[in-house]
């Protein structure tokens, strides 16, 4: 289906050109006027500055930013690469911590109906809480904005992993468990060589959902706690009224989110099996 791919690529590119063209036209500065109106004189011509920038301006800025993404010129002037790295670091730290708890706990809940019944009410109450609602409590208890952001990531990525692990483990086919039993595998060996591979696709689905949510939440969390990170960067550029930077960083958020999802998608492929 090479021809389909080529046709799709051509179509994609033309959509992009049309969209950028429309955007460029819609954001042309108005014709130079003969004289300033009274309002414009009052605003000192600032109106020019605050309109949505054309794509050419965004691309120019992107080029400049991406050719030196890791410069560091003080607290309020760091390269986009550094800001993204802060965010990715927080997401991964919180995410890995969530994994370290969600996978074993999910196994326990999945294998023991007793634990499932005992823990389910808590999970059902905690799960629908917006992760940002934890922020004040986290800031108060942890007393550290960076760790609080990581905690918020932890709390939002734990649920899909936990529930999917429990579900995957609980629904491993009895036949496969019986194979382990007739071969006298102990509980640990059974968990690792039969239940884990059998439940892995379901677990990975949960992990993929989690990383998506974590990346959504980190932007909001960093807008709240400030200091560093792509969320803070977006908010800061908005305060500076630098809309080209805002648009550029929005695109970068999308690109990094896509890469994270792609990585989990690849991992998912690795553990998939057909019955």
């Amino acid at each position: 289906m090479a021809s389909l791919n080529i046709r799709a690529a051509l179509l994609s590119v033309s959509f992009l050109i049309v969209a950028l063209g429309l955007w460029e036209m819609a954001t042309q500065p108005p014709e130079a006027q003969t004289g300033m109106s009274e309002y414009e004189m009052l605003m000192g011509g600032a109106d020019q500055e605050s309109r949505v920038p054309p794509p050419s301006a965004v691309i120019k800025l992107a080029w400049a930013e991406l050719s030196n993404p890791f410069y560091d010129a003080g607290a309020n002037d760091k390269g986009i690469g550094i800001q993204l790295a802060y965010s990715v670091y927080r997401v991964l730290t919180g995410y890995l911590a969530a994994m370290a708890i969600a996978l074993p706990l999910g196994f326990l809940i999945g294998m023991s109906p007793l634990m499932y019944k005992a823990l389910n009410p808590y999970i059902q109450v905690l799960r629908p809480i917006s992760p940002l609602a934890w922020m004040p409590l986290a800031l108060f208890i942890i007393q550290d904005s960076d760790a609080s952001a990581i905690f918020v990531i932890f709390i939002c990525s734990i649920w899909p992993m936990l529930l999917n692990t429990a579900f995957g483990v609980a629904n491993v086919r009895q036949d496969w468990v019986n194979v382990a039993r007739t071969h006298e595998l102990g509980p640990i060996k059974t968990a690792l060589t039969v239940i884990l591979p059998a439940a892995a696709p379901t677990i990975l689905t949960g992990m993929r959902i989690s990383i998506g949510i974590a990346w959504l939440v980190i932007v909001a969390a960093e807008m709240l706690v400030g200091g560093t990170g792509i969320g803070y960067y977006v908010w800061n550029e908005w305060n500076n009224l630098d809309l080209a930077s805002v648009i550029f960083s929005i695109l970068m958020i999308g690109v990094v989110g896509m890469l994270l999802d792609l990585a989990l998608g690849k991992a998912q492929k690795l553990v998939e099996y057909k019955e």
């Binding site: 036949d175 496969w176 019986n178 194979v179 039993r181 007739t182 071969h183 006298e184 039969v194 591979p197 059998a198 892995a200 553990v271 099996y273 057909k274 019955e275």
Partner: peptide
């Protein structure tokens, strides 16, 4: 009293590990 290696089982639905 329980399953053991001295007794091998072949199930109707094969029960091979698909991965």
């Amino acid at each position: 009293k329980g399953p053991g290696l001295e007794r091998g089982v072949v199930f109707q639905n094969y029960s091979l590990l698909p991965w």
